[in-house]
Amino acid sequence: MDPLSLFYYRYVFRNASARQLLDPEVFYDRHVFQDFEENYVPHMFKEICRQYLVRQNRTGKIEPAFDAIGKYWYDDPANKTSGEFDVVTQDPEGYAFYEAKFRKSPITQKMVDEEIAQVEATGLKCHRYGFFSRSGFEAGESDRTVFIDLPQMFG
């Protein structure tokens, strides 16, 4: 489903009665704002990040160019661990894992280190770790990390 239809059915159609009774700003505050900020936009942000990577790949700005893109999740009941990685690409060198964070605060070095440790625990061959952030970074890039913020994506 396209984003506009998803928005309509999630917020407008579902709350049609309230929409007819309330001022538009009150309706937005009560029935849209919190879920939109905490669930809808972060989910859509992951898709925007995926599309950004595809565009960069097509124009030759990602080296090596990837052949496949998707997400990766795992469930390890024996060790009681599970996880999901927002965007994963595969190229001749292996995998690149990207995490998309639509947070009001910057991504910290601790968060970067935790994500890298989580990927390494899977045993997959990863040669690049990418991070997308709405609010920037309080972390240092390395030769294996890529940091992408909103101005870079839309600049």
Rank of each mutant, 00 (worst) to 15 (best):
E25H: 13
M44A: 04
Y28H: 11
D76Q: 10
E141Q: 14
D67T: 12
M44P: 00
G83A: 15
N15V: 02
K101A: 12
E115N: 12
G136C: 12
D149R: 10
E63V: 15
D143R: 15
C126H: 01
D67C: 11
M1N: 07
F132L: 11
E120Q: 15
D23V: 01
D29C: 02
T122F: 03
Q109L: 09
E138G: 06
S135G: 11
T81C: 13
R30G: 00
F66S: 03
D143Y: 02
E99M: 02
F13H: 09
V112T: 12
P3I: 13
R58S: 11
I69A: 11
R128F: 00
E47R: 13
K101G: 02
R128N: 07
R134P: 10
Y95Q: 05
M1I: 05
K110V: 07
M44E: 03
R19F: 13
E114C: 02
Y129Q: 09
K80D: 11
C126S: 07
L124C: 05
Q152H: 13
L22H: 01
R30M: 01
H43T: 09
L22Q: 08
D149W: 03
F131S: 05
E99C: 04
G83I: 13
S105P: 06
K125Q: 12
F154L: 15
Q90A: 10
L21F: 03
P77W: 03
Y52E: 11
V41C: 12
D2W: 01
A117F: 03
Q90R: 08
Q118G: 09
L150V: 15
Y11D: 01
S142H: 05
A100V: 09
Q90W: 01
D76P: 02
Y98L: 01
A65K: 13
A68P: 00
G130H: 07
T108V: 15
V87D: 00
K104F: 07
P106W: 10
T122K: 06
V112F: 14
E93G: 04
F102R: 00
L21V: 01
S135M: 13
T122D: 06
I148V: 15
Y8I: 03
F137Q: 08
F36V: 05
S133M: 12
T122S: 05
T59K: 14
Y129V: 01
H43L: 14
V146L: 15
A121F: 08
F13Y: 09
V88A: 05
G130T: 07
H127M: 06
T122V: 06
H127Y: 11
Y11H: 05
S82Q: 14
V54W: 09
K110E: 14
Q56N: 04
S105A: 15
T122C: 04
P92F: 08
Y8V: 04
F7Y: 11
L4I: 06
G60W: 08
L53F: 09
I116Q: 01
I48C: 10
F137L: 12
Y40S: 04
E84A: 14
D75H: 15
Q20S: 09
K80R: 14
G70Q: 00
K101R: 14
